[in-house]
């Protein structure tokens, strides 16, 4: 009888420990973007939401292996799903999408005027824009084959650099 109770207790403990062990949160193994997105969705839905950044990077790497314009849509739909599932806020979903697949720089989001806000931190902003440009190179050029989009972003980067240099010089001359 005692042995029976002991066995039951051990079994219960084993089952409980299985239930609380963390999910493996492995990266998708497939090279197919659609299938990889499905794998990632399953993982995210089963407790791996904390690994979102890594999964997004995995998906980008998978897409780089088979670049095509249609990949933009797959990423957009994946991010819309993530926002609907509550894994990301709407704003985060937009940031993830636009940082990689839009010409506009999310780094330049601001509610205050250039003289008072942008100019004092211009070096930092330009550095952040440079990082964002390399993300755009990945998203627009390497994943979506959107050459025009990437080159417009690159041109925009240079124009912003020139115009901010002039504007900030003018702002500081007026102080």
């Amino acid at each position: 009888m005692k042995t029976m109770s002991l066995l039951t207790a051990v079994s219960v403990l084993l089952v409980a420990s299985c239930a609380t062990s963390p999910p493996p949160c492995d990266s998708p193994q497939t090279r197919n973007l659609g299938a990889a997105v499905d794998d990632v969705k399953d993982s995210l839905a089963s407790g791996c939401a904390a690994h979102f950044d890594r999964y997004y990077d995995d998906l980008l790497r998978t897409a780089e292996g088979d670049p095509k314009p249609g990949n933009k849509r797959i990423f957009s739909e994946f991010l819309v799903w993530s926002a609907e599932e509550g894994l990301l806020s709407q704003r985060q979903a937009k940031d993830y999408y636009n940082r990689y697949f839009n010409v506009k720089f999310m780094t330049l989001q601001s509610d205050y005027n250039n003289c008072s806000h942008t100019c004092p931190r211009r070096d930092r902003i330009m550095l952040d824009m440079e990082h964002e440009l390399s993300d755009k190179e990945r998203g627009l050029l390497k994943v979506s084959l959107d050459n025009d989009g990437y080159y417009r972003a690159d041109e925009l980067f240079q124009e912003v650099e020139l115009v901010l240099e002039a504007t900030c010089t003018a702002c500081s001359a007026g102080q």
């Binding site: 010409v103 506009k104 720089f105 330049l108 989001q109 601001s110 509610d111 205050y112 005027n113 250039n114 003289c115 806000h117 942008t118 100019c119 902003i125 417009r152 925009l156 124009e159 912003v160 115009v163 901010l164 002039a166 504007t167 900030c168 010089t169 003018a170 702002c171 001359a173 007026g174």
Partner: peptide, 27 residues
């Protein structure tokens, strides 16, 4: 003259986001 214009039109009236939109100019 240009300094005054740049300060008022691009420096004081615009944010970095609106400046970006101006530069993109509707593609």
């Amino acid at each position: 003259s240009l300094e005054k214009r740049l300060r008022s039109e691009l420096g004081n009236k615009m944010t970095s986001w609106t400046l970006q939109e101006t530069l993109l100019g509707g593609n």
